[in-house]
Simulated assay, not measured.
Amino acid sequence: MIITIDGPSVSGKSTVARLVAERLKIYYLNTGLLFRAVAYILHIRDQYTRMTIARVSEHELHSIYFLYTYDSQAQERILFKTIDITPHLKNEEIDALSSIISTLPYVRTYVNEIARAIVKSNDSVVDGRDAGTIMFPEAEYKFFLTAELTVRAERWIKDQAEKSHIYTLEQAKNILIERDQRDSTRAIAPLVIPENAYVIDSTHMTLENVITTIIDKVLKK
């Protein structure tokens, strides 16, 4: 069984997907973390920057090896050369780098292959921006999670503040608008609502409401 949860940046899909997986006692795959891992390794190992990372070769890409692990206690982690690099994968620089490489067809193919290999033997909840359209179009249950821009911006500001990064509401909105535009208009795997997906607008919903809505849909189908 595969459950996909797609949505724009800061729609809450990773938090929701993780908790749904925990309650259903199945595997959780954060596909965004896979792209971030690739971007981080290229940045640290090969010194790629925002100006150069789009020129990464397929040979360099396929020389990258890392391990994705998940359990309900430790959550998801990325290990590179046995070192847990997960804490380094969520900052503005890696955001930008992963967004750039995600537009490259051979990078998406590479990450898709990794994702499919990870869930091959596991009932899984998978979140991303194309989990239900490109990665797992055959998924039995598909959800699309969204929220109003202001709500998403406020969530992002709070998340960044926990890392000592301070942004105004206007700055946060502009960053998310740019991301949404890039994600929805890219030629390869644009952000769209998957066919037959159940759309959830969490603007006026609690986290618990969203989780129970998804679980109820899965268990009642």
Rank of each mutant, 00 (worst) to 15 (best):
T4H: 12
T4V: 07
I5K: 12
D6P: 11
G7N: 08
G7S: 08
P8W: 04
S9G: 14
V10D: 03
S11Q: 10
S11I: 03
G12Y: 09
G12N: 08
R18A: 14
L19A: 14
L19Y: 14
L19I: 14
L19P: 05
V20C: 12
V20A: 11
A21D: 07
E22H: 09
L24V: 08
K25I: 11
K25N: 11
I26L: 08
Y28T: 07
N30Q: 03
T31P: 04
T31N: 05
G32H: 00
G32T: 00
G32L: 02
G32R: 00
L33M: 10
L34V: 06
L34A: 07
F35M: 01
R36L: 04
R36H: 04
A37I: 01
Y40F: 09
D46A: 10
D46G: 02
Q47G: 06
Y48K: 02
M51E: 00
T52F: 02
A54S: 11
V56E: 05
S57W: 01
E58P: 00
E60I: 00
L61K: 08
H62G: 02
S63H: 11
I64V: 09
Y68P: 05
Y68G: 03
Y70C: 15
S72R: 04
A74G: 14
A74E: 14
F80N: 06
K81N: 15
T82H: 13
I83G: 02
I85M: 13
T86F: 13
P87M: 07
H88T: 09
N91S: 03
E93Y: 04
A96W: 00
A96N: 09
L97P: 05
P105E: 00
V107K: 06
V107R: 05
T109Y: 02
Y110F: 15
Y110K: 12
N112C: 15
E113F: 11
E113K: 15
E113A: 15
I114E: 01
V119A: 15
K120L: 10
S121M: 05
D123G: 05
S124G: 09
V126Y: 13
D127Q: 06
G128N: 04
G128E: 05
D130L: 14
T133A: 12
E138P: 12
A139P: 07
Y141M: 10
Y141C: 11
K142E: 12
F144E: 14
T146S: 14
L149Q: 15
L149K: 15
T150I: 15
V151C: 08
A153R: 04
I157G: 01
Q160R: 14
Q160K: 14
A161V: 06
E162I: 11
Y167M: 05
A172L: 08
K173M: 12
K173N: 13
K173A: 10
N174E: 15
I175K: 06
Q181R: 06
T185W: 04
R186S: 04
A187C: 05
I188H: 02
I188A: 01
A189R: 02
L191F: 01
V192Q: 11
I193H: 13
P194H: 09
N196P: 10
A197M: 02
Y198A: 03
V199E: 11
S202E: 01
T203Y: 08
H204C: 06
T206W: 08
N209S: 13
T212C: 03
T213H: 01
T213I: 00
I215W: 13
D216H: 14
K217T: 03
K217M: 07
L219Q: 05
K220F: 10
K221W: 06
